[in-house]
């Protein structure tokens, strides 16, 4: 896989089917449905329990706004990922082009996906910092790889935004 900036696009090329599949899973991975721990993390309270009124108002007025914000970003990313739709053979060496104006949406959804996966799997800080983890041998390992892969993409997009 190669990743580089080309004019107004971030280009991820030479994607093998495995990485292409991980990319396609970004919107699904960011979904908190059916995962209370992830829901709790993404929509965390704005204050401690003493501020019950503030927390209740937040849930009523702010949370729906946040949900809309995240949904819009997910739709943007989903639309970009349609470039990867196709059968397995045509996925080989496929290139994904992300318009730089979509960079914020990508940063947001990648972050959300990482948080949701980490919450679902209850990863420890030690696990998350173990970048030299052994090869994927379980579903949990795959999830950890996913978190690190999405983190790598986030880092690249951030670097490009700074340029």
């Amino acid at each position: 896989m190669e990743i580089r900036r080309r004019k107004n696009q971030i280009e991820i090329s030479e994607l093998d089917p495995f990485l292409a599949e991980l990319l396609r899973q970004i919107p699904t991975s960011a979904n908190t449905e059916g995962a209370p721990a992830a829901e709790q993390r993404i929509f965390s309270p704005p204050a401690n329990g003493k501020e019950a009124e503030l927390c209740a108002e937040w849930k009523m007025y702010v949370e729906p706004e946040l949900r809309r914000l995240f949904q819009t970003a997910t739709q943007t990313v989903g639309a970009d990922l349609e470039q990867l739709n196709g059968n397995e053979k045509s996925l080989a060496n496929r290139t994904l082009r992300i318009p730089t104006k979509h960079a914020d949406a990508w940063l947001s959804v990648l972050n959300q996906a990482r948080l949701v996966i980490a919450a679902k799997n209850n990863f420890t800080e030690t696990e998350l910092n173990d970048h030299l983890h052994s090869p994927i041998g379980s579903r949990r390992d795959l999830s950890l790889f996913q978190v690190n892969f999405y983190g790598f993409l986030q880092e690249f997009i951030l670097r490009e935004l700074e340029c």
Binding site: I42, F43, S44, P45, P46, A47, V62, L69, S108, L115
Partner: peptide, 16 residues
């Protein structure tokens, strides 16, 4: 500010 920080998915709170 806290709303904006939550929009970026950071763990942020208000404290009196």
């Amino acid at each position: 500010y806290v709303q904006q920080l939550h929009g970026y998915l950071l763990l942020a709170t208000l404290e009196k």
